[in-house]
Structure formats: structure tokens, C-alpha cells
Amino acid sequence: MPGLEDLYREIILDHYRSPRNRGELETPPAVRVEGFNPLCGDEIVVTIDVQDGVLADIKIAGTGCSISQSSASMMSAAVKGKSVAEARDLIATFKGMMSIHEATLPSGAGDAGTIEETEPEAIDIDALGELAALQGVVKFPVRIKCATLSWNTLAQGLDEAASPV
């Protein structure tokens, strides 16, 4: 039986208590996307500023549990300043880490489904850096949606930034 330390790693609690990149960017030029977790009513707002194929800035707003908030915070730190292609790779890798169990869960809103499923053995956990701390979440299947909420929302934002309405 997995213990709480598998879920609530110190780095996760640190990001929860001191979230990075909080707030919203001005739209336009930024793109604003909302994500919802229908299970718990949590809402996340991701605003991104994409310039010349680079994710120049990102802010996170909304409310959620420690897992969704820390995942969003770590995500924002990891993708800020990266190219859109690099950000998409990271999304795929992170979702891959979470997909082992997510595939067995009922799908809900906020699961953009734009990310290809990655075979577990193909995932380069090292590439995730401190995000690997969220690996323990897969042992708590109902919390996977919490961890992936911000990533699905970012993926949707990148899609919208690539094809402005």
C-alpha cells in the first residue's frame, strides 16, 4: 500500500506553498485557456505568451488541490522560455508518465486528448527533472486528473496560439 510520502513529496509541498508564476498575462497578446476538473470542481487558468515559436511567458491562476497546484507550478517553471516544440515534448513525456493509469480512468473535460499516448518504457524520466517527483501520483489513480489538469490546459493553449481564431 503506497504511503503518503509517495504522493506528497517535499518538492510538491514546496511548490504548493510557494507557487511559481502565479497570475494572468494580459490578453492579447497572451492566449488564455481555462481547464476544469469535473470531479472536484477545480478550475485552472493558463495564460501563455508565444513569440517566434518560443513560450516567452506563462502564468497560472485558479484554485486546486496541492497536486494540481504544484504540478501547474512546476510545469510553468519547466516550460517558460522553452520553444513550443520543446514544451510539447515535455507535455508528451509528462503525460506519458501519468498515462499508465490514466488510460483506465473515465475521460472527462479538461482532457484535451491532443497528446499521443507514450509507451511507458519510452519515457525519459530524467528529462522531467523535479517533475519526476509527481511520479508517485500514479499510485493514487483518482489524483492523476489533478496532476494532468494544467498540462492538458497548456496543450490546448499551445494549439490555440498556433492557430489564432
Binding site: 504522493l7 477545480d42 484554485t63 497536486i67
Partner: peptide, 12 residues
């Protein structure tokens, strides 16, 4: 403390 986190700790 978020309700999800409360429920998770309580489960233990």
C-alpha cells in the same frame, strides 16, 4: 487545505 488533500490524508 484543499478538500482533495483532506480526503487523501483522512483515507490514511
Amino acid at each position: 487545505v484543499h478538500p482533495h488533500d483532506i480526503s487523501q490524508i483522512l483515507d490514511q
